Amino acid sequence: MGQRSDRFRVEITIDDHVVDVRAFGEIDIATVGSLRAALWAAPARPTLRLDLSGVQVLSAAGVRALVAAHLRVRARGGELVLVDPDPVVERVLRATGLHRVLPVRQSASAGKPVLVAV
């Protein structure tokens, strides 16, 4: 399942207890509607994980969408978790204080070297 535009796309994977949303591109005023639609369409599960490793831009509109999604998920008894933000996006999360409101985690594979057999 996914949504796509030239500057932004999202992929959604649904499991029994977790919905994984993976975002790619820029989240700004022009693309935030696609992110919002994906987060609102996600079925209720205990955890909604938003992978931000493929996001290079997070504008104020994107921050507002994350706060709204957090409130919506929390009202349904779940938790929104941000995963692997790009360093630029992580600076935005810290500058806005959003990292204190939403859990920001690194995935097990983030930052670890990949071993390739030769």
Rank of each mutant, 00 (worst) to 15 (best):
residue 61 A to K: 04
residue 90 E to Q: 12
residue 113 P to M: 05
residue 34 S to G: 15
residue 75 A to V: 08
residue 82 L to Y: 00
residue 105 R to D: 06
residue 44 A to D: 14
residue 107 S to D: 07
residue 17 H to Q: 15
residue 12 I to T: 15
residue 73 V to M: 02
residue 78 G to W: 08
residue 55 V to A: 02
residue 33 G to S: 10
residue 74 R to A: 13
residue 14 I to C: 14
residue 63 V to S: 04
residue 102 L to H: 01
residue 106 Q to V: 11
residue 48 L to I: 05
residue 32 V to I: 08
residue 116 V to H: 11
residue 107 S to E: 05
residue 46 P to K: 04
residue 100 R to W: 00
residue 85 P to R: 01
residue 52 L to H: 03
residue 100 R to P: 00
residue 19 V to L: 09
residue 58 L to Q: 03
residue 33 G to Y: 07
residue 88 V to K: 12
residue 30 A to K: 11
residue 84 D to E: 05
residue 24 F to K: 01
residue 105 R to E: 14
residue 15 D to C: 12
residue 74 R to N: 10
residue 43 P to W: 06
residue 9 R to H: 13
residue 67 V to E: 02
residue 73 V to P: 00
residue 92 V to D: 01
residue 104 V to R: 04
residue 27 I to P: 07
residue 43 P to E: 05
residue 30 A to R: 14
residue 86 D to W: 12
residue 79 E to C: 10
residue 78 G to F: 08
residue 32 V to C: 08
residue 81 V to F: 06
residue 53 S to D: 11
residue 118 V to P: 11
residue 56 Q to I: 11
residue 1 M to A: 15
residue 104 V to S: 02
residue 88 V to R: 14
residue 83 V to S: 06
residue 32 V to W: 06
residue 40 W to M: 14
residue 99 H to A: 12
residue 62 G to Y: 04
residue 80 L to Y: 05
residue 30 A to N: 13
residue 7 R to D: 15
residue 19 V to K: 07
residue 76 R to C: 10
residue 41 A to N: 10
residue 71 L to S: 13
residue 24 F to Q: 11
residue 116 V to Q: 11
residue 68 A to C: 04
residue 32 V to M: 08
residue 102 L to F: 00
residue 8 F to M: 04
residue 50 L to G: 06
residue 35 L to T: 10
residue 79 E to M: 09
residue 27 I to T: 06
residue 5 S to H: 09
residue 62 G to C: 04
residue 83 V to P: 04
residue 46 P to E: 05
residue 6 D to E: 14
residue 30 A to L: 14
residue 2 G to N: 15
residue 78 G to M: 03
residue 78 G to T: 07
residue 20 D to F: 13
residue 51 D to E: 08
residue 118 V to Q: 00
residue 85 P to S: 02
residue 27 I to L: 08
residue 21 V to Q: 08
residue 48 L to V: 09
residue 76 R to E: 14
residue 19 V to Q: 09
residue 33 G to I: 03
residue 106 Q to W: 05
residue 5 S to I: 01
residue 64 R to G: 02
residue 91 R to L: 07
residue 44 A to F: 00
residue 9 R to E: 13
residue 45 R to G: 08
residue 72 R to V: 07
residue 100 R to C: 03
residue 42 A to S: 09
residue 79 E to T: 11
residue 88 V to W: 06
residue 61 A to I: 03
residue 15 D to I: 12
residue 109 S to Y: 11
residue 114 V to I: 10
residue 72 R to S: 12
residue 118 V to K: 00
residue 17 H to Y: 13
residue 82 L to C: 05
residue 100 R to D: 10
residue 60 A to N: 05
residue 71 L to G: 14
residue 111 G to L: 07
residue 7 R to P: 04
residue 14 I to D: 15
residue 43 P to T: 08
residue 87 P to A: 08
